[in-house]
């Protein structure tokens, strides 16, 4: 019994976020049974939540390491653009994906060098790179959207964002695999410990012999590559690229990370929390509309969920340390 209480106490943040999720889902099932007791809405969620969810999972590692990356919406647009252009030139979505990942990695290296090499605080460095990548992309695109309707006919489209067995969005499978990989990385790989130590106290981590600089640059590169992957997948799903791509993801990603219980001060956070946070944030708007409420309620409900979650996390973290 004691060990069960200890288990609950040790995982209080994760239990809280699961409870919030269950309450929301139950409410939607009660108020919108015609929508939430049928599979169609869940398939829609499986097709959209993975894009923001992937970035949120990667952002969790960044925040745990004590950094932040505000450039990801622009990196998403830049990666999506290189994907679209590479596809237009070669008719190969595989090469497009390689180009998008390379663009994301490059953006990550630039962020990492600015933060680690030039000692610019990440919040400032990534504001700068956010403007840079967006500006460069729009300049190269001439401000025009790119349509890729024919990409829907390729096998690679089916592999990445198609509907497997005629119902399962492939991106949900990739998201699940990526989430599992990142869980292993954080909890069963030495990089996870390094990230936590860096986020908790980078000077102490340095003294302990942890390669702090390499770890911090790595986390930005991982973030960039995952953003690139998400950008390319959004392009494939939508069969087009547009210059403002990624701009709507800022709130969703950070809300998912912090609702999920990751500490803004670094050193603490869970992949499970962010996963549930991403699902909660991703399901709210459609749930409200299906329940018959005006869309004007959406932001207030977002606010309530975020306030309740982060307050509960703050209280429980304090309580569990006693």
């Amino acid at each position: 019994m004691q060990s069960f209480v200890d288990y609950l106490k040790f995982n209080a943040v994760q239990w809280t976020i699961t409870f919030v999720f269950m309450v929301l889902l139950f409410s939607f099932m009660v108020f919108a049974p015609h929508t939430f007791l049928h599979s169609r809405i869940y398939i829609a969620y499986l097709s959209t939540i993975p894009f923001a969810g992937m970035i949120a999972i990667a952002m969790t590692l960044v925040v745990i390491s004590g950094e932040i990356d505000l450039s990801f919406p622009s990196v998403m647009a830049a990666s999506g653009f290189t994907f679209a252009k590479a596809y237009a030139f070669t008719s190969s979505p595989e090469l497009g994906l390689v180009a998008a990942l390379a663009t994301g990695a490059l953006a990550g290296v630039v962020n990492g060098v600015l933060v680690v090499g030039f000692k610019v605080p990440s919040i400032i460095a990534t504001i700068g790179t956010q403007f840079f990548w967006r500006g460069l992309t729009v300049l190269l695109a001439g401000g025009l959207a790119l349509n890729m309707a024919e990409i829907r006919e390729t096998a690679f489209h089916h592999l990445m964002v198609g509907r497997w067995f005629d119902w399962l969005p492939a991106q949900a499978v990739w998201f699940a695999l990526l989430t599992a990989l990142f869980w292993l990385l954080l909890n069963r790989h030495v990089l996870g410990d390094h990230l936590r130590f860096c986020g908790d106290n980078s000077s102490a981590a340095q003294m302990m012999g942890i390669p702090v600089a390499r770890t911090r640059i790595s986390v930005f590169v991982i973030m960039g590559m995952v953003t690139g992957l998400s950008g390319a997948m959004v392009c494939m799903e939508m069969a087009s690229w547009w210059p403002t791509q990624g701009e709507g993801y800022m709130l969703l990603v950070f809300a998912a990370v912090f609702v999920g219980g990751t500490s803004v001060f670094g050193g603490q956070g869970t992949i499970y929390g962010t996963l549930v946070g991403a699902i909660i944030i991703g399901m709210i708007e459609a749930g409200i509309i299906s329940s018959g409420l005006s869309g004007l309620w959406t932001r207030m409900v977002y606010g309530i969920v975020i306030i309740v979650s982060v307050s509960a996390h703050a209280f429980l973290t304090k309580y569990s340390k006693k």
Partner: peptide, 17 residues
């Protein structure tokens, strides 16, 4: 408004309702 790709579940939810 900024990122139309987020709108998918809204249309699905509305049409289901």
């Amino acid at each position: 408004d900024k990122d139309p790709s987020i709108g998918t579940p809204i249309v699905t939810g509305y049409l289901a309702a």
